[in-house]
Amino acid sequence: MNNVRPVLTVARWTLIEAIRRRMVFVAVLLSAAFVALFAAGFVLLYGMAEREMAGVSSGVGTGTGLLAIAVVLTVLGLYAVQFMAALLALFLGVGSLSSDVDSGTLHAVLARPLGRGQYLFGRFAAFAALLAAYCAVMVGALLLVARLVAGYQALSPVRAVALVVLEMLVLLAIGMLGSTRLPTLANGVLMFSLFGVAWLAGIVGFIGGLARNETMINLGIGVSLLFPSDAVWRGASFYVQPASFLAFTGNAGADASIPFAAATPMTGAMLGWAIAYPVACLAVALLAFGRRDL
């Protein structure tokens, strides 16, 4: 218990900081605006499609067509949420240690009977909690809108949220690792570049899948191992789609899938890697930060 108390003290202080610096306020405001925009767009586009389909004929194709439109809208909306959350995670992770080192506020704090590891885990816990809450609320809100408007049933909202949160932990942890040694700006440039490369690799892997090109698929996987954020999102995207749609795309082969989303679940090996990844990042961060002269 004696070891946990300082961690909680730091986590609490970090949360107060997030609130006091208006980070939470701005995030809530923008998120509310985004959900409203998504709801309006969904109602409008889905309603339009519904009327058009009704005009053509009623048959098996109509249901699938409408379903596809709902899936595309929902997946794109969630993709945007995931993207915003990822930026937030990177932003929080990148400056998590270095900004207080640079400003000098950490000197008095770390001279206290507080281990460097306790400080690091306290920061991580607070940011992880913020990101988890953000992802759960946003993914939940979008799926709820889709359900109310189109009767949309995601395969597993819980798994989808869990994987999106895991993606954020990956980003937060690697950002924190960089933050142990790099100045905030340099770390930010590095992390956003890596994030961009991972995103690109995801697209390359997707196209490779369509083209059945082994090299492109392997390139996608290779980059995913180095920086698994996009791979975890693809894992989450599977559970976001309805079972009926997945059955349809499954029958039609990968060609019928949509970019930014996967038609098959994440492999167990990739999932294991994605869980081990932030743990490893934090372990290395602890070593790097523990030895650093301030």
Partner: peptide, 12 residues
């Protein structure tokens, strides 16, 4: 300990 560059969390 009072550090040389006494800086504290400005938001607090």
């Amino acid at each position: 300990y009072l550090p040389e560059h006494f800086r504290f969390q400005e938001w607090a």
